[in-house]
Design a protein around this nucleic acid. Structure first.
Lengths: 161, 161
DNA sequence: TGGCCAATGCTACACTATAACAAAGTTCCC
DNA sequence: GGGAACTTTGTTATAGTGTAGCATTGGCCA
């Protein structure tokens, strides 16, 4: 699963380095606030997940991590991913068994994802109205919703053009 | 993963045998219409998936299938599951890596699922308004939606009571 | 009767994820 | 500063999910 350096963005070329820096800074700040540790290992994993706007598999993270961290093993990666998810810094894309940096880090939340099956770029969109509609639908069925998984696959605007 | 005979329904006790029979009859009719083969193997797998209203893992299907079909292997099961999904008779629940009988077999479609994390019962609900809202949201992002995964986990009405 | 196609058999393997226990590092209190 | 409690990481092994690739069978029909 080679994920090249080019074509990393969801919509157009942009300064992706700034994306990564934003994500890392936000994570550092939030961890400080919360009194939890963004250890070098965890930070490195977060950086790897943020290398592109495409969901990345745990074993791809492991391969990349192992270059700087020879002792890395599957549990190393999964523990870091679990931490990052618990803090709301990344999401798991269930339909791909892969992980994606969260653009709205802060409150842990369920996102809504648009996944391009051609280029792999995945966009997280926030749509309060839609979220409310989902909660409505649950409530109507007498169901206490706790977690939402909403993943839409198809062709992104760039690939369609 | 013991899935008992009791407590099989999403909402209340009901004649689950009728559920299964309905599903099998519908599948037989549709396959005849479409000129595809609902072989004994595929029918058996469909029946196993329909044993309850809880999503069932592929390897649980395999265990059950092997009782009557000694040569069954993972590919046996996955091929049958793929066929049944392609024909719209079952759904895959991505967040559980498990499969569930479709209550609205016929047109292949993406469902919306309410998954109880306590009893496992999973209800498929149809909500055209919500589906339209999801399509709207995609379109607004210039995205051509092809497949939807919508899975809501929480506590069902029965378990809450 | 031979060629084609769909379905199944079968072996092996790839990919995803966790259990369980050991070791090292951190915090905080006295 | 010593040490208990806790968090994080190391390490080995294994469980769980899914597919590749080729062989075999059986029906259809030209």
């Amino acid at each position: 699963m080679a994920r090249g350096a080019a074509q990393q963005t969801a919509h157009h070329t942009h300064n992706h380095k700034a994306c990564i820096e934003d994500a890392l800074t936000t994570a550092r700040d939030l961890c400080a606030e919360r009194g939890v540790q963004l250890t070098p290992l965890r930070e490195k994993v977060l950086q790897i997940v943020w290398k592109s706007h495409k969901p990345v598999g745990a074993y791809d993270v492991l391969d990349e991590l192992a270059r700087s961290h020879k002792s890395a093993r599957p549990p190393t990666v999964y523990r870091a991913l679990d931490f990052l998810m618990a803090e709301g810094f990344i999401h798991k894309i269930e339909s791909l068994n892969a992980y994606l940096g969260c653009v709205e880090a802060g409150a842990p939340h369920s996102g809504l994802f648009l996944i391009c099956r051609k280029c792999g770029a995945t966009e997280e969109i926030a749509d309060p109205k839609l979220e409310a509609a989902l909660d409505q639908a649950s409530k109507r069925a007498g169901f206490q919703a706790e977690r939402r998984v909403v993943e839409i696959s198809g062709i992104c605007a760039q690939c369609a053009a």
